[in-house]
């Protein structure tokens, strides 16, 4: 089937082009998602794992101890050796890969917009997951958006995934806590979750991220900021209007004020990074004016999400 290959999938949909370039798709194909938590046992195959024994694929034998399920005793071996051995099987487990995108109106800033950038990251990571037959779920945390992406698996779902991403529009205001809480309720199992947002929530990000910690998910937090936010170039006496809630901040532009703003921003980013680090989450701050391919192939690779 033509749509099975990434090239054909990308060329089939004009939307795919805007999110993922064909050359980049070819590079993504070589990658796979890595979970630091779920797949750790599989990486070290020699170790006995309590998760064995659920699938049909044989993994190992072990001595019978009292209390073991008699159904897994290898009777042929018992006949030959007169000893009880338990037959172990590999856990047949796929990787649940979630991407949670902030689609609030504040994400509609920058060139390209933060939302577009987030979509590109989600598309790239989703494509890696799909090629590795992982279970890929992309959701938005905006409360007003009810539409959820279905769980996708396999390359054939690429088109659906891209289509879903393309249809995401900025709307509503950021409410991290509600968004992540709902997500956690919907997806109780372990997996990898990548949260993409600017984290400019006036109620704070701490409570929201605590849900992820409680979920014991392997969480990656990508904080997106546009150059306008990092180095504002405003002049004069201004009334700053919040695009989400219409909140107003009056400022008189001065070098001293900008200096103070930069310090506040740096503190904010640092507090998020520290929060994540302390709780075993990976934090990554990305500027929308840097190539998003770099985020995937360089930064996320360094942080161990892909390899």
């Amino acid at each position: 089937m033509a749509s099975d290959t990434p090239q054909s999938a990308a060329s089939a949909s004009p939307r795919a082009n805007t999110l993922l370039a064909p050359e980049f798709l070819a590079r993504l194909e070589q990658m796979e998602l890595v979970s630091r938590k779920v797949l750790r046992g599989r990486l070290k195959g020699e170790r006995r794992s309590k998760r064995r024994g659920q699938s049909v694929e044989f993994a190992d034998f072990r001595n019978y101890v009292k209390g073991d399920d008699l159904r897994f005793i290898d009777w042929n071996l018992y006949a030959r050796l007169d000893k009880l051995f338990l037959k172990l099987f590999l856990e047949e487990e796929d990787l649940h890969f979630y991407t949670l995108i902030d689609t609030s109106r504040s994400m509609d800033f920058g060139e390209p917009t933060k939302l577009q950038y987030a979509k590109q990251i989600a598309a790239a990571l989703g494509f890696i997951g799909l090629t590795q037959s992982d279970r890929v779920v992309i959701e938005t945390m905006n409360q007003s958006v009810t539409r959820r992406s279905p769980a996708l698996r396999g390359r054939a779902s690429l088109w659906r995934m891209l289509d879903y991403l393309q249809n995401l529009e900025p709307d509503g205001s950021t409410d991290l806590t509600t968004g992540i809480k709902r997500f956690c309720l919907r997806h109780p199992g372990p997996g990898i979750v990548v949260v993409i947002s600017d984290f400019m929530d006036k109620n704070g990000f701490e409570e929201a991220l605590r849900y992820l910690v409680a979920q014991r998910m392997d969480a990656y937090v990508i904080q997106l900021l546009s150059p306008e936010e990092l180095e504002p170039a405003l002049q004069g006496d201004l009334k700053l209007v919040d695009c989400e809630d219409g909140d107003i901040a009056e400022i008189t532009a001065s070098s001293a004020l900008y200096e103070r703003y930069r310090r506040t921003l740096a503190n904010f980013v640092e507090s998020l990074r520290t929060f994540c680090m302390k709780r075993g989450m990976v934090h990554l701050m990305a500027r929308t004016d840097q190539p998003f391919e770099q985020i995937i192939t360089q930064y996320l690779r360094q942080r161990g999400l892909v390899r």
Partner: peptide, 15 residues
């Protein structure tokens, strides 16, 4: 003051 729309006044308010 000239109104200017910004992604968030969150950091400005703090400043």
């Amino acid at each position: 003051r000239t109104p200017v729309e910004v992604p968030s006044t969150f950091l400005w308010k703090k400043t």
